[in-house]
Design a protein around this nucleic acid. Structure first.
Lengths: 237, 237
DNA sequence: ACCTGAACACCGTTCAAGT
DNA sequence: ACCTGAACACCGTTCAAGT
């Protein structure tokens, strides 16, 4: 216990309402930090800039938040404060499909959050709630917990990777393949050059197709495993 | 063209050998930066610290590299300088399996590089070579290019997400579920609490099982789509 | 012409001075 | 006791002084 100072990630929501916003509060700080990240990008979230936006002194922030790292953790968890609504009576596949698209929507709405997901962080109550909702939805079909977890993790892992091209592609600054579209690179990697000229890396409609295509394949594979149809039982190893 | 200063990402490998290492060179700078990231973590890669390690002045680095961002791009691409060896005559599934594990090994060997993959970056020749190797291996089975791309992307996206828990779990400081293992959280998320007590988030053997499990499901789904067995043709949409 | 130290505008956080 | 400004140890990069 007492891991660093991340306790407040799981702490009470800043106590019962005792009057007006009264100036600074943890909620207001986190909300403003999220707003800055959304509007100007995560690197612009500095204690100095944040305090300026809140009309307070820099050091006043440290009364409500132990430090920058914990603030970022709170920002990340805050965007997952409400778990998604999942169809309860249409089976595990419909539930996981809805869940996957909810995760996708979440990261499309908060592009700054995706790199944070790939960094070693503390599981907060928000993220735990999202995981829990998926586990319950899959578990409702009666699978063993380890099998449910493996399935949820597989979908979660896929989505985390698959949102990435959608975040970067289709925008005004397609950094990614800039150099592929040029001269010598075309000759070095002919298999890739075709794809660039056909627009597979830039058109957002194609990228969305890729997201759904991979998700459907994964769910097909899970379905074959979870509901073999034939006699073989379903065990993890 | 002239995108910022990332041209040198695709430029010649620093000219023909003209004598001894002679002090500073782009290769030496990038290699040392990678060594620092491996030993002390990416945040410790600062121009000042790097120059100190190289026994040079800070500003001398800017003679060989436009800036920090471009240096990081070069670091990232340098770890993919040699594409993986793939089995050439055992079909697309064997090739993609080998490729997926090679990507996994790459990020396990360079944990600092995974967050960079999720950030908007310029495709370098190294990463292009890895993609190209996968495209050629799958294309050899005769699928349409867009179908090959969708399959390679699906596997790539899955692996990028699935390596993540392996990087964080199984180490001495399992930050992730620290608070799940405690008191009230267990009651809020009972479905998750079981998994913690059973060790699903910490034991690296189980995490490796998860990686393979999801990959096999995805490949099963791709196989059913690419080789239907029944009469239906294979088209992307 | 080439190289690089000093200076600048930042950053997160400690520490002690203020009330 | 609570709050917060000044100070510290960083950071990447510009700019002009050095050779």
């Amino acid at each position: 216990m007492g891991q660093g100072g991340y306790e407040l990630l799981w702490g009470n929501p800043a106590g019962p309402g005792r009057g007006r916003p009264a100036g600074l509060s943890r909620e207001r700080i986190v909300a403003e930090a999220v707003a800055i990240a959304a509007a100007e990008g995560l690197p612009r979230v500095s204690m100095k800039h944040l305090a300026e936006r809140l009309g307070s002194g820099v050091m006043s922030l440290y009364r409500h938040v132990p430090g920058k790292d914990e603030l970022v953790a709170l920002m990340y968890d805050s965007i997952m404060s409400t778990p998604p609504d999942l169809p309860a009576d249409q089976g595990w596949r419909a539930a996981l499909t809805a869940w996957a698209h909810a995760v996708r929507d979440l990261f499309l709405a908060h592009p700054w959050a995706l790199p944070l997901a790939t960094v070693n962080h503390v599981l907060g109550p928000g993220e735990a709630g999202w995981l829990d909702s998926a586990m319950r939805a899959v578990g409702a079909s009666g699978f063993a917990t380890d099998l449910s977890l493996a399935s949820v993790m597989a979908v979660n892992n896929y989505v985390g990777g698959a949102v990435r091209p959608e975040l970067h592609g289709g925008q005004e600054d397609p950094l990614w393949f800039t150099f592929l579209a040029d001269d010598g690179a075309m000759q070095r990697f002919p298999a890739l050059a075709d794809l660039v000229t056909e627009g597979h890396f830039q058109e957002s409609a194609l990228l969305r197709d890729h997201f759904s295509f991979g998700l459907e394949r994964l769910l097909d594979g899970l379905e074959r495993y979870l509901e073999p149809g034939s006699g073989q039982g379903a065990s993890l190893t």
